[in-house]
């Protein structure tokens, strides 16, 4: 259990999905702070506010788990906005979604997402991938911008 200063911003409107993701992250042994947001607008405001004038502040490093299917703005818009803003571009983003549409995956990578994970319905493999993701979080120190 290595506590790193990285906090996980989870943007997920479905309460059940959010709970499942959190449970799995915890089960994988990741103890980082998880900040859940149920819509894209609030999350975007928060992220931008956090990075307005403190590019060098390591304490505020974060990782974003982004659902593409959001009630207010499209997850793709959130992704595009974060990657288009200088102060937030370096934040790693992992897209979580229910579809495995090749075109959509391609679009996400084009916009600059760092990883794309299909919300797996096979529970075991889902838990496994999130666990691996958790290990990845805990071991790799994300390089400063």
């Amino acid at each position: 259990m290595i506590a790193t200063p990285i906090s996980i911003v989870m943007i997920e409107d479905d309460e059940g999905h959010a709970r499942l993701i959190e449970k799995n992250i915890r089960r994988a042994g990741v103890a980082n702070e998880i900040m859940p947001f149920a819509n894209g607008g609030d999350a975007l405001d928060f992220i931008v506010a956090q990075h307005q004038d403190s590019q060098s502040n390591n304490d505020r490093r974060m990782l974003i788990l982004l659902d593409l299917n959001l009630p207010d703005v499209s997850g793709l818009d959130v992704l595009a906005k974060i990657k288009a803003t200088d102060s937030t571009r370096q934040i790693p983003i992992i897209v979580l979604t229910t579809t495995d549409d090749k075109l959509e995956i391609q679009r996400c990578y084009e916009l600059g997402c760092n990883a794309y994970i299909k919300k797996p319905l096979e529970y075991e493999s889902f838990a496994n991938s999130v666990r691996q993701l958790g290990l990845f979080f805990s071991i790799i120190e994300l390089p400063p911008a």
């Binding site: 059940g16 999905h17 499942l20 449970k23 919300k119 319905l121 096979e122 529970y123 889902f126």
Partner: peptide
């Protein structure tokens, strides 16, 4: 199909949790 999948993720996920 997209919208049906969301609840299904929950059903499967929490069934696994029950397990």
């Amino acid at each position: 199909s997209h919208d049906l999948r969301s609840p299904l993720v929950n059903i499967m996920g929490f069934t696994a949790e029950l397990g």
